[in-house]
């Protein structure tokens, strides 16, 4: 169970995340929605401490995440994997090495420095890639892949961390609808099959409705909605999105629903052995 208690983050005179109190039970798939600038990304970055909170607590068990330093902080980041809108792979490294960087925290320092990976680490990375249907690209440079493929490699890197929580910051905002569906299906199957908690920032409403057990709506740094997709009424959604409502509701623009696309049936994720 991950608990946020009155979590606040300020940037100079703007408050990006304001007094957020939330519980994330283990194994839930949570979608965070809201217009751009609502504080979704900041909230996720606070969870793995890529940003430090200004006030409040982040509790995982009895651990106060907000106070971790050094090796303990890195241990938490290793437990709490993240995937990014722009994938954040190392373009000039091959795909396999990119995935194996997910093991860095567990590796002894000299092996990490010398970039020496063991057969087990390679095997784990290949299994993670294979699960996302990307094993055939293992020896290619990451920058030669398309956006959708890079995001699947990024998910494989996250899996290689053997995380307890997976944070996804707008994972499909830079992808076309087919790739968006592949990525979201992967995240859901990781959530269902491995029991990993997934917290996912999403810009579009229908994707959140289709994939998440629970939706959190944010507006101006505050949580204004927290409930099941069924509880999210059109009026509520309109309030969350404000002026961007039309864009968010326009399902053909950035949605993952591909009812008419035959390829969509080919789900890329296989259960790991």
């Amino acid at each position: 169970m991950l608990k946020l208690d009155q979590l606040t983050r300020r940037f100079k005179d703007t408050v990006a995340v304001s007094d957020v109190t939330l519980d994330f039970p283990d194994g839930q798939m949570v979608g965070v929605i809201g217009r751009s600038g609502a504080g979704k990304s900041t909230l996720l970055r606070l969870l793995n401490r890529l940003l430090d909170p200004s006030e409040g607590q982040i509790l995982f068990g009895d651990n106060d995440i907000a106070r971790l330093k050094g090796r303990e902080l890195r241990a938490w980041r290793s437990d709490c994997a993240m995937i990014f809108q722009q994938f954040n792979l190392v373009g000039r490294l091959d795909v396999l090495t990119n995935v194996m960087t997910g093991r860095l925290f567990e590796m002894p320092g000299w092996r990490a420095m010398a970039q020496v990976f063991t057969a087990e680490e390679r095997a784990l990375a290949i299994q993670a890639l294979d699960r996302l249907g990307m094993a055939h690209t293992a020896l290619q440079r990451a920058e030669t892949l398309s956006g959708g493929q890079q995001q699947r490699v990024a998910i494989a890197r996250a899996l290689a961390q053997r995380p307890r929580i997976l944070l996804a910051d707008e994972p499909i905002a830079s992808l076309d609808p087919l790739n968006a569906k592949i990525v979201m299906d992967s995240l859901r199957s990781i959530n269902r099959e491995d029991g990993i908690t997934v917290v996912c920032n999403l810009h579009t409403l229908d994707t959140a409705r289709d994939y998440c057990d629970r939706i959190i709506g944010m507006q101006a740094g505050r949580v204004v909605f927290d409930g099941t997709p069924a509880q999210l009424t059109a009026g509520m959604a309109r309030e969350i999105y404000g002026a961007e409502a039309e864009e968010a509701f326009n399902e053909s623009a950035t949605s993952t629903s591909l009812a008419s696309d035959p390829d969509a049936a080919a789900a890329p994720v296989r259960a790991s052995a």
């Binding site: 954040n88 190392v90 373009g91 925290f105 990024a154």
Partner: peptide, 13 residues
Amino acid sequence: SRPVEGIAATGGT
């Protein structure tokens, strides 16, 4: 800085 952020998020020093 994106790849750097990616490595930081895995728990890298």
